[in-house]
Every structure is written in structure tokens, then in C-alpha cells.
Amino acid sequence: MYAIVTFQDSDEVMVVASNWLSLDKKQCYWPPFKSSEKCTEAVQNRIKPETGGKPWEKLNITFHRENVTFEKAKEGQKEIKDQKERSYLLATGFPGLLKRQRLESPQGSTSRMSAEDKVEILQMLTDIKSTAQENSTMLKKLLGGNTVSEAPSSTCLPSKGIKVNLQLPLRTFEDVARIERELNTATTRKKYVKYLSGLGGFMAKDVNKNIMQQVLTDDLAKEFNWQGRGDKKAFSHLILTDVIRDAAVKRSVNRVDCETEIKKYLSYTADRLSRKRPREQGGPGFEIPNVISTSMMDNQPEKYTFEDMFDLTF
């Protein structure tokens, strides 16, 4: 049996093995694997929730229902995600758009929206976020006087003092070794999570880009890939990677999406450097060549669709 649950910390709808649930179905074991493929395989095989005899971490959940097969559970997962998406649209003032969708498509899928509808949604989301920031600033001023600065934008950075104390970005392997030692203590780890989660960003791509830019210079990033293939170092093996995931979760980016964006960021490092260095060395009027690098993930240019931008995590 397979269960469909929502993890309360990340509000992420997932399929899990039924034998991972607690008796009251309020908690669920979740594997500590860094690979999303390995997690999916563990669910499908309904393996015992432990590694080396040590039980996995238990997470608080909201239980939805169970299915006999994994395929049926995945279908149910999609239905629940779609329901949450429609609820969000209704709650944020998009009922007219939903009505048009139902008339045009029985399933009301966002993939069948017109270009005008997509632009409308993006604009409304931007307006909602801006209003929320303004309200937050006003509330802080009312509670604490007029000492609070204006609300930061989604990509603004915390104070320089915090950044200096944490000694970022990392520039050498010695810096990486140092931060790995520091992150063995819970207090330091929480400090880094708090700082990185405050870097802003609205979509998964922006959140992870803001974090990775502050964590690594491009010259150091090019020495890493996710699995450590070839002559590269394995970024997935670092404690720092877990800290980045924790920070992204605080920005409502689920672990799978965070991992995907880290892989993309590392794979496009060569492209970033090829664009940046001619600008730095060529002087005024220097024309940047059209350089396309081949990455270990794929050979496609970095391009996001509207669906990537609209992938709200519930």
C-alpha cells in the first residue's frame, strides 16, 4: 500500500510507503537519501525505514488517503496538488480566470492557459507579494516605532555584518574544508540556514540562485558537480548542501526542486564564466562570443518555461 501525505514543514504533497506511517497517521518516516531517484525507489520498494539499523527521521504529516499501487497513488498526488492550486487561485482572487479555464478545458489545467492569462497571473502574483511586503513593513513600524527600514525586495541581502561573520562566498577548497568543520555544530548550522534563507527569491530558481551566488564563487563552483564525476568534486556529499536545502525549505522550495536547481546552477558555471571574463578583460566595445558549453546534466541552454515559474509549492 502507498499513502498520499502532505509534509507539514514544507507543505509538499508526496507519495510514501504505508509502512512508513505511524499508527495514528500523523507522522511519517522519510529517507535521508540525497538523491531524489533513490528516495522514489525506496518508496516503490517499500523498504524498511532505517539505514544501518538506525531509524529514519520522523516528520509531521497530514494524511490524505491510501492506494494499492504506486501508479494510483501518483495519480492521487497530482489530483491533490491540482486541488490545492485551484484553492490558491480562488483564495488570491483568480476565480474569474478559473471559470474561463473550466469553460475551455474540463480539467482546468494551467498548461492550457492563454498567453494573456499567464501574464495576468504573474502580474497578480507580483502585486500580491508587493502588498504583503508593504503590510509587513507597516506592521513592524507600528509595533516597534519608526526604526524599521523599508521592506526588502525579493533579492536583497541581509546586513553586511552577518555576511562578513560567515566568511562567504567560499573561494578555495580550504574555505570549503573550514565551513564543513564549522557546520558540525548545530549553532553554526542554524546561523547559516538563517542567513541563506534570508537572501530572498520568489520562485525555486531565484531562491537557489541567490543562495548559490552567496555560497560559492564561480571559479570554485566550476570544480564541482552533483555526483563528483570526472575530475570534479561531489557537491552532494557536503554538509553545506544540506544547509542549502534547509534554507530553501524555509523559502517554500521543496527538497527535490532545490536539488534540481543546484544541479543546474553547477552545470552552467562554465557558461557564466565565459560570459563574465570577456566583459572583464575586453574593455569597452568588446563583443562577447556566443559560447555554448556542454554540461554533464544535458546540452540544453538554461531556459525556464512559465510552468517552471508557476510551480507553487503547497
Rank of each mutant, 00 (worst) to 15 (best):
E66A: 15
R86F: 02
W30Y: 15
T6F: 00
E50A: 11
K38F: 01
L90N: 13
Y192I: 03
Q123K: 14
I61T: 08
Q101N: 02
D11I: 00
F202Q: 08
A115P: 00
G230L: 08
S111R: 15
L166H: 08
D117L: 06
R277T: 12
N299K: 09
L166S: 04
K264T: 08
T188C: 05
D219L: 11
N210T: 04
R102T: 09
K81E: 13
D218I: 03
Y304R: 15
Q107R: 12
A248H: 02
T126Y: 15
I239W: 01
K205G: 01
T126F: 14
S111C: 10
R102V: 11
E50K: 09
S105P: 00
L122G: 07
G161K: 08
Q214A: 11
E12G: 00
C258G: 05
Q27M: 09
A247Y: 05
R112E: 11
R189P: 00
Q83D: 08
E116C: 03
F173G: 00
K276G: 01
S154M: 05
I244V: 14
E182M: 12
I4N: 04
L143F: 12
K72R: 15
K222V: 15
N60A: 13
L103K: 05
E120W: 12
R245M: 01
S18H: 08
A248R: 02
L89Q: 06
P32C: 07
T51F: 02
M14V: 14
L199W: 04
T305W: 06
E150Y: 10
M113D: 04
D311N: 14
A73H: 06
P278F: 06
D127R: 15
R272L: 09
V253C: 12
F7A: 02
A73L: 12
K74F: 02
E50S: 13
Y195W: 09
I288E: 09
A42C: 10
A17F: 07
L122F: 14
K190I: 09
S105I: 02
L220C: 06
D117Y: 04
I47Y: 03
V68S: 11
G108K: 07
G285E: 07
K54H: 10
R171F: 05
E104Y: 01
L196S: 04
E182K: 15
E180Y: 10
E116M: 13
V43T: 07
I80N: 03
R279K: 15
K118L: 14
K84T: 01
I244E: 03
N146Q: 13
E150C: 02
V16S: 09
L312S: 07
I292Y: 10
A221K: 04
K264F: 13
Q83C: 03
